[in-house]
């Protein structure tokens, strides 16, 4: 389990997190959402030990992240948004170099994922499009067999069929008990995939709840008129979509974009509802 306790972090004089607490138990796909600059990538880096908290702690299975001990690094893989690849290498050579460090790596899984994502393992990175490079890296990262997979904007550069394949692959991996944390702006790409959802705001965690809890607390109404009590309303073809407090206990279909906007515009109300 990843545990963050009373964590403070700042870049020189710019505070990013102020006393945040979060935990990521194993076996789920967490969605990490937030506006630009709130610290989504920074949080992933803190979890990996690439950034040092000012105070508080971040542990992965009880090991302090910043120590970056091999035992911890073998359990976690981080795929940043931007990766510099050796032009002359192929995805197969790339995993050949990485795999000796990961006893859980399975070559068959790598080849299977590459096939599913329709990328040739022996083609040079320099001959690939950005999307193909990204797919290769996703396949390589997932085939390492680590317990924790941290993905920063993983769907950037992927075409529409690849996004569907990506969702399908992640679902299978989560079923194997792995923990996946996805930081993204492209919420539509990961809708119906991420659960629980964590929304960050400046210095704080605004929401950390499962989809079930969210739909218990909030009601997503589609196709009606604009409601004055709505936490968020948006005009869609066929009428308004309203996000309101769920007082009747009725079930509804979660819309992550609407949830995100509702949370950002009603920070105090949301805290009260989910307290």
């Amino acid at each position: 389990m990843i545990e963050i306790k009373n964590l403070d972090f700042s870049y020189k004089k710019t505070p990013v997190f102020n006393n945040i607490n979060l935990s990521f138990p194993q076996g789920a796909i967490y969605g990490l959402l937030g506006e630009n600059g709130v610290g989504k990538t920074t949080l992933l880096k803190i979890i990996c030990g690439l950034q040092r908290p000012v105070s508080g702690s971040c542990t992965v299975d009880g090991l302090t992240s910043y120590d970056r001990l091999p035992e911890m690094l073998q359990r976690i893989v981080f795929l940043p948004d931007e990766v510099t690849l050796p032009d002359n290498a192929t995805p197969q050579k790339y995993v050949d170099e990485l795999s000796p460090f990961y006893p859980t790596f399975v070559q068959g899984t790598f080849l299977h994922l590459m096939q599913e994502l329709e990328v040739e393992p022996d083609r040079k990175f320099r001959e690939m499009s950005f999307g193909q490079q990204k797919k290769s890296l996703i396949a390589a990262s997932l085939s390492l067999g680590t317990d924790y997979v941290l993905l920063d904007e993983p769907t950037n550069g992927l075409d529409i069929p690849s996004k569907a394949q990506f969702r399908s692959i992640l679902s299978k991996i989560a079923d194997e008990g792995k923990t996946i944390i996805i930081s993204t702006h492209q919420v539509k790409d990961v809708e119906n995939l991420i659960d629980p959802i964590v929304i960050l705001s400046h210095n704080a965690v605004l929401l950390d709840a499962s989809v079930q809890k969210i739909t218990e607390k909030l009601f997503f109404e589609y196709g009606g008129a604009e409601r004055p009590d709505a936490l968020y309303s948006e005009l869609l073809p066929g009428g308004y979509m309203n996000v309101v407090a769920n007082e009747s206990g009725e079930e509804s279909q979660l819309n992550i974009e609407a949830l995100f906007n509702a949370v950002l515009r009603n920070k105090e109300k949301i805290k009260e509802l989910f307290a």
Binding site: L50, R68, L73, P80, Y102
Partner: peptide
């Protein structure tokens, strides 16, 4: 900073 992540994440001690 960014490009060094690959090496920093290799499972070996500092």
């Amino acid at each position: 900073k960014k490009r060094g992540i690959y090496f920093a994440m290799l499972p070996a001690t500092k």
